[in-house]
Amino acid sequence: MTVHFHEEDLPEGVLAHGPVAVDTETMGLVTPRDRLCVVQISDGGGDEHLVRFRNNSPYDAPNLKAVLGDPSRVKIYHFARFDLAAIEHYLGVVAAPVFCTKIASKLTRTYTDRHGLKNLIHELLGEDISKQQQSSDWGAATLTEAQREYAASDVRFLHRLRDILIERLAREGRLEMAQAAFDFLPTRARLDIAGWADKDIFSHE
Protein backbone atom coordinates (compact mmCIF):
# COMPACT_ATOMS: atom_id res chain seq x y z
CA MET A 1 0.00 0.00 0.00
CA THR A 2 1.57 3.25 -1.20
CA VAL A 3 0.43 6.86 -1.22
CA HIS A 4 1.57 8.56 -4.42
CA PHE A 5 1.79 12.37 -4.55
CA HIS A 6 1.49 14.25 -7.84
CA GLU A 7 1.54 17.92 -8.79
CA GLU A 8 -1.20 19.27 -11.09
CA ASP A 9 -2.18 16.01 -12.82
CA LEU A 10 -2.43 12.25 -12.52
CA PRO A 11 0.21 10.29 -14.45
CA GLU A 12 -1.22 8.38 -17.37
CA GLY A 13 -2.00 4.69 -16.90
CA VAL A 14 -1.53 4.41 -13.14
CA LEU A 15 -5.08 3.22 -12.45
CA ALA A 16 -6.60 -0.16 -13.25
CA HIS A 17 -9.90 -0.34 -15.09
CA GLY A 18 -13.15 -0.25 -13.16
CA PRO A 19 -14.64 1.88 -10.39
CA VAL A 20 -12.49 4.52 -8.71
CA ALA A 21 -12.82 6.04 -5.27
CA VAL A 22 -12.65 9.84 -5.31
CA ASP A 23 -12.44 12.59 -2.71
CA THR A 24 -11.41 16.24 -2.60
CA GLU A 25 -9.78 18.66 -0.19
CA THR A 26 -10.59 22.35 -0.49
CA MET A 27 -9.88 25.57 1.39
CA GLY A 28 -13.38 25.51 2.88
CA LEU A 29 -16.98 24.51 2.33
CA VAL A 30 -18.14 27.28 -0.03
CA THR A 31 -17.29 25.89 -3.46
CA PRO A 32 -17.04 29.10 -5.55
CA ARG A 33 -15.00 30.81 -2.85
CA ASP A 34 -12.82 28.01 -1.46
CA ARG A 35 -10.53 26.61 -4.10
CA LEU A 36 -9.88 22.97 -4.85
CA CYS A 37 -6.50 21.92 -3.45
CA VAL A 38 -6.29 18.12 -3.68
CA VAL A 39 -8.08 15.33 -5.51
CA GLN A 40 -7.58 11.84 -4.11
CA ILE A 41 -8.24 8.81 -6.27
CA SER A 42 -7.81 5.04 -5.94
CA ASP A 43 -8.69 2.02 -8.05
CA GLY A 44 -9.08 -0.13 -4.93
CA GLY A 45 -5.89 -2.09 -5.58
CA GLY A 46 -4.08 -0.83 -2.50
CA ASP A 47 -2.46 2.41 -3.67
CA GLU A 48 -3.86 5.94 -3.41
CA HIS A 49 -2.97 8.86 -5.66
CA LEU A 50 -3.11 12.47 -4.46
CA VAL A 51 -3.14 15.22 -7.09
CA ARG A 52 -2.31 18.61 -5.59
CA PHE A 53 -3.22 21.93 -7.22
CA ARG A 54 -1.35 25.03 -6.12
CA ASN A 55 -2.74 28.53 -5.74
CA ASN A 56 -3.57 30.14 -9.13
CA SER A 57 -3.50 26.71 -10.77
CA PRO A 58 -5.10 26.62 -14.24
CA TYR A 59 -6.53 23.19 -13.34
CA ASP A 60 -5.21 21.81 -16.61
CA ALA A 61 -5.13 18.13 -15.72
CA PRO A 62 -6.02 16.12 -18.82
CA ASN A 63 -5.26 12.68 -17.40
CA LEU A 64 -7.23 13.24 -14.22
CA LYS A 65 -10.12 14.80 -16.12
CA ALA A 66 -10.21 11.85 -18.51
CA VAL A 67 -10.63 9.42 -15.62
CA LEU A 68 -13.18 11.54 -13.77
CA GLY A 69 -15.22 12.18 -16.91
CA ASP A 70 -15.17 8.56 -18.13
CA PRO A 71 -18.82 7.43 -18.24
CA SER A 72 -17.77 3.78 -18.04
CA ARG A 73 -16.18 4.22 -14.61
CA VAL A 74 -18.28 4.44 -11.46
CA LYS A 75 -16.91 7.06 -9.05
CA ILE A 76 -17.30 6.12 -5.39
CA TYR A 77 -17.58 9.02 -2.94
CA HIS A 78 -18.54 9.68 0.63
CA PHE A 79 -20.84 12.74 0.46
CA ALA A 80 -20.62 12.97 -3.32
CA ARG A 81 -22.66 16.16 -3.42
CA PHE A 82 -19.73 18.26 -2.21
CA ASP A 83 -17.02 16.58 -4.29
CA LEU A 84 -19.04 16.68 -7.50
CA ALA A 85 -19.55 20.42 -7.07
CA ALA A 86 -15.86 21.10 -6.45
CA ILE A 87 -14.73 18.95 -9.37
CA GLU A 88 -17.21 20.45 -11.83
CA HIS A 89 -16.57 24.04 -10.70
CA TYR A 90 -12.76 23.85 -10.84
CA LEU A 91 -11.99 21.05 -13.30
CA GLY A 92 -15.00 21.46 -15.58
CA VAL A 93 -15.86 17.76 -15.43
CA VAL A 94 -19.04 15.96 -14.37
CA ALA A 95 -17.46 13.13 -12.40
CA ALA A 96 -20.23 10.56 -12.81
CA PRO A 97 -21.70 7.92 -12.70
CA VAL A 98 -21.84 8.02 -8.92
CA PHE A 99 -22.03 5.77 -5.90
CA CYS A 100 -22.27 7.70 -2.62
CA THR A 101 -21.54 5.70 0.53
CA LYS A 102 -23.15 8.38 2.73
CA ILE A 103 -26.49 8.16 0.91
CA ALA A 104 -26.27 4.36 0.85
CA SER A 105 -25.62 4.40 4.57
CA LYS A 106 -28.65 6.62 5.24
CA LEU A 107 -30.85 4.30 3.18
CA THR A 108 -29.67 1.15 4.95
CA ARG A 109 -28.34 2.01 8.42
CA THR A 110 -31.64 3.49 9.59
CA TYR A 111 -30.90 2.30 13.13
CA THR A 112 -28.38 5.14 13.60
CA ASP A 113 -27.86 8.78 12.75
CA ARG A 114 -24.08 8.38 12.54
CA HIS A 115 -23.21 8.28 8.85
CA GLY A 116 -19.74 9.81 8.82
CA LEU A 117 -16.97 7.97 7.01
CA LYS A 118 -15.17 7.23 10.27
CA ASN A 119 -18.35 5.64 11.69
CA LEU A 120 -18.93 3.55 8.56
CA ILE A 121 -15.38 2.25 8.44
CA HIS A 122 -15.44 1.36 12.12
CA GLU A 123 -18.76 -0.49 12.01
CA LEU A 124 -18.59 -2.21 8.63
CA LEU A 125 -14.86 -2.87 8.31
CA GLY A 126 -13.65 -2.90 11.92
CA GLU A 127 -10.92 -0.34 11.24
CA ASP A 128 -10.29 3.16 12.51
CA ILE A 129 -9.15 6.32 10.75
CA SER A 130 -8.15 9.70 12.12
CA LYS A 131 -10.09 12.81 11.08
CA GLN A 132 -7.66 15.17 12.84
CA GLN A 133 -6.40 16.77 9.60
CA GLN A 134 -9.86 17.39 8.15
CA SER A 135 -9.81 21.12 8.90
CA SER A 136 -6.11 21.73 8.25
CA ASP A 137 -4.64 24.15 5.68
CA TRP A 138 -4.82 22.29 2.38
CA GLY A 139 -3.45 25.30 0.51
CA ALA A 140 -0.11 25.24 2.34
CA ALA A 141 3.07 25.20 0.27
CA THR A 142 3.96 21.80 1.72
CA LEU A 143 1.48 19.15 2.82
CA THR A 144 2.54 17.20 5.90
CA GLU A 145 2.74 13.43 6.05
CA ALA A 146 -0.25 13.52 8.39
CA GLN A 147 -2.27 15.44 5.79
CA ARG A 148 -1.27 13.05 3.03
CA GLU A 149 -2.20 10.01 5.10
CA TYR A 150 -5.54 11.58 6.04
CA ALA A 151 -6.31 12.37 2.38
CA ALA A 152 -5.38 8.84 1.30
CA SER A 153 -7.51 7.24 4.02
CA ASP A 154 -10.57 9.03 2.68
CA VAL A 155 -10.48 6.87 -0.48
CA ARG A 156 -8.70 3.79 0.85
CA PHE A 157 -11.83 2.00 2.12
CA LEU A 158 -14.53 3.16 -0.29
CA HIS A 159 -14.47 0.14 -2.61
CA ARG A 160 -14.96 -2.23 0.31
CA LEU A 161 -17.71 -0.09 1.79
CA ARG A 162 -19.50 0.00 -1.56
CA ASP A 163 -19.53 -3.79 -1.79
CA ILE A 164 -21.10 -4.13 1.66
CA LEU A 165 -23.59 -1.31 1.12
CA ILE A 166 -24.76 -2.73 -2.23
CA GLU A 167 -25.59 -5.97 -0.42
CA ARG A 168 -27.52 -4.06 2.25
CA LEU A 169 -29.38 -1.96 -0.31
CA ALA A 170 -30.43 -5.15 -2.08
CA ARG A 171 -31.43 -6.78 1.21
CA GLU A 172 -33.67 -3.83 2.09
CA GLY A 173 -35.13 -3.50 -1.41
CA ARG A 174 -33.65 -0.02 -1.92
CA LEU A 175 -31.18 -0.46 -4.77
CA GLU A 176 -33.42 1.26 -7.32
CA MET A 177 -34.13 4.15 -4.95
CA ALA A 178 -30.42 4.56 -4.23
CA GLN A 179 -29.52 4.55 -7.92
CA ALA A 180 -32.10 7.24 -8.64
CA ALA A 181 -30.59 9.37 -5.86
CA PHE A 182 -27.07 8.80 -7.20
CA ASP A 183 -28.15 9.77 -10.72
CA PHE A 184 -29.58 13.06 -9.41
CA LEU A 185 -26.44 14.07 -7.50
CA PRO A 186 -24.67 15.93 -10.35
CA THR A 187 -27.77 18.11 -10.71
CA ARG A 188 -27.96 18.58 -6.94
CA ALA A 189 -24.32 19.76 -7.01
CA ARG A 190 -25.10 22.25 -9.78
CA LEU A 191 -28.03 23.60 -7.77
CA ASP A 192 -25.63 24.13 -4.86
CA ILE A 193 -23.21 26.11 -7.01
CA ALA A 194 -26.05 28.11 -8.57
CA GLY A 195 -27.35 29.31 -5.20
CA TRP A 196 -29.89 26.74 -4.03
CA ALA A 197 -27.64 24.94 -1.53
CA ASP A 198 -29.94 25.67 1.42
CA LYS A 199 -33.27 25.66 -0.41
CA ASP A 200 -35.56 22.69 -0.95
CA ILE A 201 -36.99 23.37 -4.41
CA PHE A 202 -39.36 20.43 -3.97
CA SER A 203 -41.05 21.88 -0.88
CA HIS A 204 -44.45 23.61 -0.93
CA GLU A 205 -42.99 26.83 0.50
Score class of each variant (00 low, 15 high):
residue 121 I to T: 05
residue 121 I to C: 12
residue 121 I to L: 13
residue 121 I to V: 15
residue 121 I to Y: 06
residue 123 E to C: 10
residue 123 E to D: 14
residue 124 L to N: 01
residue 125 L to N: 02
residue 125 L to Y: 05
residue 126 G to E: 10
residue 126 G to P: 05
residue 127 E to P: 00
residue 127 E to T: 09
residue 134 Q to E: 13
residue 135 S to E: 14
residue 135 S to K: 14
residue 136 S to Y: 01
residue 136 S to P: 00
residue 136 S to L: 01
residue 137 D to W: 00
residue 138 W to R: 12
residue 138 W to T: 03
residue 139 G to V: 11
residue 139 G to M: 14
residue 141 A to Q: 10
residue 141 A to K: 11
residue 142 T to E: 08
residue 143 L to W: 04
residue 145 E to T: 00
residue 147 Q to R: 09
residue 149 E to S: 09
residue 150 Y to K: 03
residue 150 Y to L: 09
residue 151 A to E: 05
residue 152 A to L: 13
residue 153 S to T: 10
residue 154 D to P: 07
residue 154 D to A: 10
residue 155 V to H: 02
residue 155 V to G: 03
residue 157 F to C: 11
residue 157 F to I: 11
residue 158 L to S: 01
residue 158 L to I: 07
residue 159 H to G: 04
residue 159 H to Y: 12
residue 162 R to G: 01
residue 162 R to H: 03
residue 162 R to E: 02
residue 165 L to G: 02
residue 165 L to W: 08
residue 166 I to Y: 00
residue 167 E to Q: 08
residue 167 E to L: 06
residue 168 R to Y: 08
residue 169 L to D: 04
residue 169 L to P: 04
residue 170 A to M: 11
residue 171 R to E: 07
residue 171 R to N: 05
residue 171 R to L: 07
residue 171 R to I: 06
residue 172 E to I: 11
residue 173 G to K: 06
residue 173 G to E: 09
residue 174 R to W: 08
residue 176 E to T: 10
residue 176 E to I: 08
residue 177 M to D: 15
residue 178 A to M: 12
residue 180 A to N: 11
residue 181 A to M: 13
